[in-house]
Design a protein around this nucleic acid. Structure first.
Lengths: 122, 122
DNA sequence: TGGTTATTTAACCGATAAGGTAATTATGAA
DNA sequence: TTCATAATTACCTTATCGGTTAAATAACCA
């Protein structure tokens, strides 16, 4: 795998099964077999074990031990790192608002000066 | 690749070269060769082309054409989707605050009742 | 002890990710 | 037309991913 923490995290999140496991864990701890249940028809137990390993390596979950069960729980820290990384791009996904805002400002100015200029066709 | 949009996006973000490209693009449009420049020593031009294809398929960038150049620009929408997905987990990365908060509350109550209980050692 | 359940490991397989080199296409300029 | 630059495509290799089945390990229960 790609070495650095963020790459491990993003790569781990890039699989729908693993994201579904995280959704389940966001509702509370669960053993491996509980986590596997929803996928029984589509996937074997070892496949789930491997997914959990990927999530664990990324630090997204931690596994405890309780008798023969391995209760998994979600760990928030990598989510935080993703969130922080993402912040750098916030302006880009809010850009449409900026554009609308700018457009409205431009229109107002234009209207004040001499009205209707640069009016979109169609 | 994994079909669904979010998986494509996360997978695309799971590579440091691609994230570096996005950082560059967050500072403004750039041609393929401009984007490739910082990686020339480590990577061939076709490798960059491929990374850009991955980013493009995830909708993270769009490529235009201007003479023989393909100016790339960042597209915010997938970032937004990641951000929205991430929101579901916010409580987990802010959990430490909750714990601290809860700890302080508990301490206050305990102090009121009979003082110093569960005081941290060291 | 033997049996049952939970989980992991080992070994394997097919698909694809990520890189390389060489050749090709597209465009502009001499 | 020919040359130079930008970018892509084709083809190949290697490693990793995501899954399988079969076997091993761990812990409880009778």
């Amino acid at each position: 795998m790609n070495q650095d923490k963020l790459s491990l995290t993003f790569a781990a999140l890039g699989d729908p099964t693993r994201r579904a496991i995280l959704v389940r864990l966001s509702k509370g701890e669960a053993s491996v077999s509980e986590l596997a249940k929803p996928f029984m028809s589509e996937m074997s137990a070892p496949a789930i074990t491997k997914h959990l390993k990927v999530l664990e390596k990324a630090g997204l979950i931690t596994k405890g031990r309780e008798a023969q069960w391995r209760p998994c729980k979600l760990n928030g820290e990598p989510f935080k790192e993703v969130s922080q990384w993402l912040e750098h791009y916030r302006q880009f996904w809010e850009e449409s608002f900026d554009r609308l805002d700018e457009y409205l400002k431009t229109m107002t100015k234009a209207t004040k000066k001499k009205g209707k200029k640069n009016v979109r066709k169609k």
